[in-house]
């Protein structure tokens, strides 16, 4: 794999052909290991940009993941090396038991069930949900579901993580713990959030979106604090 881990080249997304684009003319490259906060107000296009990166919404322009253009042929390969966290964790939890959900990515890749379960248990332990391994998913709190969904995304050790509002609904200690976990990862992370405190804890680059366009791309938060008059 060479070059940026994810690259948008003049990418626009329209949900309706005649409608204004949800994101317009986005050019952005994220290098391996980089931690990018995608910030902006509600409706600024943060989620759309993440969804476009894994081909869940049709786009104009070009998206490259690990140097490979996102096309129908490459889409499942690219998805296989991308961890994605939806803003409602419940939506991506597909199995009745925590450990099964976490290990699914490994089992799908052909790892023997026992090996997959022990590897999943290690990830669960790192995320502080090991004690919930045998618990049914519907017994978990929002924060626990968030961690389980993240564990499911991390278990295959993807080089790219796309996280949509991962701190939403978490209590302050939960946010701090999640930020600490994310800061220890080697993967490139793009996190869509409007939680300044959370982003400041582990991100090194701050991209601000406004009305679907990038209005600032810097390594400090000064722009956003002045933009939001904080």
């Amino acid at each position: 794999m060479s070059g940026p881990v994810l690259e948008y080249r003049a990418v626009s997304v329209r949900y309706e052909p005649a409608a204004a684009p949800a994101v317009a003319d986005i050019t952005l490259a994220v290098e391996a290991g980089e931690r990018v906060a995608l910030m902006g107000l509600n409706g600024s296009g943060k989620t759309t940009l993440l969804l476009a990166a894994v081909g869940l919404v049709p786009h104009e322009g070009e998206i490259l993941a690990g140097g490979e253009p996102l096309t129908h042929k490459s889409i499942s390969r690219i998805r296989g090396r991308t961890g994605f966290l939806f803003n409602v964790p419940e939506d991506q939890l597909l199995f009745p038991k925590v450990i099964d959900d976490i290990s699914f990515g490994l089992v799908r890749r052909g790892l023997p069930p026992r090996e997959a379960a022990s590897q999943a248990a290690r990830v669960a332990d790192a995320l502080g949900v090991a004690h919930l391994a045998q618990a049914p998913l519907h017994h978990l709190s929002h924060g626990q579901k968030q961690r389980v969904a993240l564990a499911g995304a991390l278990v295959t050790d993807p080089p790219l993580l796309l996280l949509d509002e991962p701190s939403a609904g978490l209590d302050p200690p939960g946010k701090r713990a999640l930020a600490a976990i994310l800061s220890r990862l080697n993967a490139a992370i793009i996190v869509a959030t409007h939680d300044l405190d959370f982003a400041a804890r582990f991100c090194t680059r701050f991209v601000i979106l406004d009305n679907g366009r990038i209005v600032s791309d810097s390594d400090g938060m000064e722009q956003i604090t002045s933009l939001w008059q904080l």
Binding site: L51, V54, L56, S76, R79, G80, F84, F86, V88, D91, Q92, L94, F104, G105, R108, G152
Partner: peptide, 10 residues
């Protein structure tokens, strides 16, 4: 959203 997640997770 669930169908998206299913698609993404294979």
């Amino acid at each position: 959203r669930v169908s998206w997640a299913m698609e993404l997770r294979g």
